[in-house]
């Protein structure tokens, strides 16, 4: 098991290299000159050249990239073109906000989705099931930013229950968490439903019933745990999706998280900051998926025996 975890941990490295490579080149292909953005349109040709030399921007892209990587290995993410502060410091300051928001959103999603999915599955083809399915479909179809704005209009501007934006404690987390959470909930509900439906048809569920186990206990003890693998998988994937969804949600709710930091950096072609953000996201996403894979072993003893 430990060996497996270590192996998976090491696999994060090529992921980071691949991601940074792609991002580096994509940014270099986008139009616009970061130095001009830094110094303003009126800057003289000499001062521009000077800054270029300083940043090493006149060298070939591949050389720039390798320079970046060699620094990255030493834990140096570089200095932001825009703020002139170390990238790492800014990410450390802002990523926890994003992570916290993701956590709350996921909690909202799971609390809504898993019970709804189970109810849908146990009452297949009934009115309850149809209502859950339609709700999930709407949840998956509605765009995040619009939904977030609607929540602001109703609960913040209309009822005044929650702040419309900013980051001041738990109360400001409620609306963004619901925004992100319900979208994920829609997908997790569908997955829970189909996974449960497959499991409740299995022979061992019949065996449990034939033992005289109460129907509710059969669902809770025998069915849910077997249905959990696909559910957990989709939760892991939704986690990555949520980190991406932060870009919009943080903008709508003006939360000073990493999503907004990234958008602002892309706009100003702040390559080191964009790379820093994306590498952080990729690493976290890889680690979350590793956690999910480890979780499999605790859910299903058959997988555990394979990991050895």
């Amino acid at each position: 098991m430990f060996k497996y975890i270590l192996k998976r941990f090491l696999m994060v490295i090529p992921v980071i290299i691949g991601v940074s490579f792609l991002v580096y080149f994509i940014i270099s292909l986008t139009p616009g000159d970061p130095v001009k953005m830094m110094l303003g349109e009126e800057a003289s040709e000499e001062s521009i050249q000077e800054v270029r030399d300083e940043l090493g921007l006149d060298k070939p892209i591949i050389v720039q990239y390798f320079k970046y990587i060699s620094k990255l290995v030493r834990g140096d993410l570089g200095v932001s073109y825009r703020s002139k502060r170390p990238v790492l410091g800014e990410i450390v300051a802002r990523f926890p906000i994003t992570l916290k928001l993701t956590f709350w959103s996921m909690l909202v999603a799971i609390i809504i989705a898993v019970p709804l999915g189970i109810i849908s599955a146990t009452k297949q083809y009934t009115l309850t099931d149809s209502i859950c399915s339609v709700a999930a479909l709407i949840g998956a179809a509605v765009p995040n930013f619009w939904y977030g704005l609607m929540l602001i209009i109703w609960f913040s501007l209309g009822l005044g229950w929650f702040p419309s934006g900013g980051y001041e404690g738990i109360k400001s987390m409620v609306l963004p968490s619901i925004t992100l959470g319900t979208t994920a909930a829609a997908i997790i509900t569908r997955m829970t439903r189909s996974s449960m439906l497959e499991v409740v048809r299995q022979d061992y569920i019949r065996t449990a019933k034939a033992k005289g186990v109460n129907k509710k206990v059969v669902i809770r003890k025998h069915a849910l745990r077997n249905a959990l693998i696909p559910i957990v998988t989709v939760v892991g994937l939704q986690f990555g999706h949520m980190l991406g969804g932060m870009v919009l949600t943080e903008t709508v709710f003006s939360i000073p998280g990493m999503g907004r930091l990234m958008v602002d950096s892309i706009k100003s072609k702040d390559t080191p900051m964009v790379l820093g953000c994306i590498i952080t996201l990729a690493t976290v996403f890889s680690l979350v998926n590793l956690c999910i894979d480890i979780l499999y072993a605790f859910i299903d003893p058959r997988i555990k025996s394979v990991y050895k």
Binding site: D203, R206, T207, A208, N226, R302
Partner: peptide, 16 residues
């Protein structure tokens, strides 16, 4: 009343 089921491969819960 209890029952022995046909297929032992699928009649037991794999996670218990």
């Amino acid at each position: 009343v209890s029952m022995i089921f046909q297929d032992p491969m699928t009649s037991l819960n794999p996670v218990i």
